[in-house]
Design a protein around this nucleic acid. Structure first.
Length: 457
RNA sequence: GUCCCCAUCGUCUAGCCCGGUUAGGACACUACCCUUUCACGGUAAGAACCGGGGUUCGAAUCCCCGUGGGGACGCCA
């Protein structure tokens, strides 16, 4: 059995979206599962719509997600070049084969592929024009996911535009032949194109590769497949928001594939070991950002401390959270680790930790009103300030004991002191435990903030 | 309109191939527990076999027809 060779063939005509990433991932996983080769091929034959910027987004996104390619731009390989815009001579060569075989002809300045069979003119109601139909026999697609699919290709189609550039169907097949691709794993939207491709393979006298048409990702709300314009569709966006690539990969793998047991979060090595065609579903999957966010949280929770701090810093830099970035590194680390078990995503960190790094933190007015309306917050604060003035701040337990002792004296609970104290020193009602908050902020700042708050009530 | 693909909780899915399950898990939602706020976590609840025929002692599972969803029908990829 020869080595599996799969390819991901994006065209740089827009930002890299989640459906493309999933297609890339399935190819990559299959290559890794079979110890095969993952080829990256850039389909940039439509010069009007291509751009270097989009190409770099594809490279960046694939790299970010950990899908390294074995052959392709930047890394090379025996079947290059890997950008179709640089393969014109190869396409000319293959075109000549078709011409020599009488399977291509010119019309209206373009070159058309000639299907075998009798021709007749028919009026097409839907397209409202007369077309030439060919009495061809149906192409048979032996699909690894769909099973046997038959589809009739009964109209000649353009393979070279009148501007001299080859079109997708032609270059796709030629490159799959030239690059010795063994398995074509792509979205189901290509299933109807595949009959064209099978006809081309036949015309070249080459056995088609194994096809596997994977289900599509549907948009979260509303009808239709996910497109670049949909909310949450762009990979770049997740990168910017500080999503963990491992989490996104895990989530994406589960959209249309399943290990067939109840596992969801699983190490990449396990996914690679189990990934195969029988595990791929036939039906389309709807994108669910809540499930992705949950997966991200699970990965975040398990991140080793050092790594979490590094990633937190990168994210805060991205969000330009200046005071946090200027803080002492040891202090920064402590604040971040206090927050790690509390947040769902790195993007929350800037707002979640803002009061640790500046005195200009926002005051949540709703919470303020609510807290001040209950009990006797002014007295509680005064009592607390007095105790904190002499309490030992060296660890959480000692601070806790001091507050509990105070509560015991006044016949109240820890909670009676907590809400108002938290509000005074952080401006909010959410955050790490109050004692950690005090310890990390330090006595001086805690007392100063309490005093400042007292002056406003 | 024509052709192609698909169909289990709101969503992702297991079960289907090889008929017999209290149809399982996860996300989301709800309640309770934990608790020093907020989260995490724990427990519980609700929630599905698209419809109709057929085959069979028995159908989520096999077959057919409807219906619904998706895709393709470019000198885009």
């Amino acid at each position: 059995m020869s080595q599996v060779r799969v390819r991901f063939a994006p065209s740089p005509t827009g930002f890299f979206h989640i459906g493309s990433a999933r297609t890339a991932l399935f190819n990559w996983l299959y290559a890794r599962h079979t110890n095969g080769v993952f080829v990256l091929r850039v389909e940039d034959t439509d010069q009007a719509r291509n751009s270097e910027e989009f190409l770099n987004v594809i490279y960046d996104s694939l790299t970010w997600l950990g899908m390294t390619w074995d052959e392709g731009p930047k890394v090379g390989g025996h079947f290059g070049p890997y950008r179709q815009s640089e393969r014109a001579h190869i396409y000319k060569e293959y075109l000549q084969k078709l011409i020599d075989a009488g399977r291509a002809y010119e019309k209206d300045g373009a070159i058309w592929f000639k299907l075998p069979g009798e021709r007749s003119e028919v009026y097409d109601d839907h397209r409202q024009k007369t077309v030439t139909k060919v009495a061809n026999t149906p192409a048979v697609i032996d699909d690894k996911i769909r099973g046997r699919v038959e589809r009739l290709e009964d109209e000649d189609f353009v393979i070279f535009r009148s501007d001299g550039n080859p079109v997708f169907h032609f270059v796709n097949v030629v490159d799959d032949i030239a690059m010795k691709i063994t398995h074509v794993i792509r979205g189901e939207d290509h299933l109807s194109n595949t009959s064209k491709h099978v006809e081309l393979f036949k015309a070249f006298g080459v056995e088609p590769p194994v096809f596997a048409h994977i289900p599509l990702i549907l948009k979260q709300n509303g009808p239709g497949k996910m497109s670049k314009r949909d909310q949450g569709a762009l990979i770049e966006e997740y990168q910017k928001r500080g999503y963990l690539p491992e989490a996104l990969v895990n989530f994406l793998a589960l959209l249309g594939w399943s290990p067939k047991d109840d596992r969801e979060k699983m190490p990449l090595a396990d996914i690679i070991a189990l990934f195969d065609f029988p595990g791929i579903n036939q039906s389309n999957a709807r994108f669910d950002d809540k499930k992705l966010a949950h997966m991200n949280m699970v990965y975040l929770l398990e991140l080793p401390a050092d790594l979490f701090v590094v990633k937190a810093r990168v994210q805060l830099e991205r969000q330009q959270a200046t005071p946090a970035l200027e803080a002492d590194l040891g202090y920064f680390r402590e604040v971040m680790l206090l927050s790690q078990p509390k947040i769902k995503g790195l993007e929350e960190l800037a707002a979640y930790t803002v009061y640790f790094f500046t005195e200009e933190y926002p005051m949540d007015e709703k919470v303020r009103t609510k807290v001040l309306s209950k009990g006797d917050p002014k007295t509680r604060l005064a009592e607390l300030a007095e105790v904190l003035a002499t309490a030992d701040f060296s660890n959480d337990t000692l601070i806790e004991e001091a507050i509990k002792a105070l509560a015991a004296r006044t016949g109240l609970g820890f909670g009676d002191y907590q809400s108002v104290a938290r509000l005074a020193v952080s401006g909010t009602n959410v955050g790490p435990s109050l004692t950690s908050l005090f310890r990390v902020l330090g006595r001086e700042r805690v007392l100063a903030r309490i005093a400042r708050f007292q002056a406003t009530v």
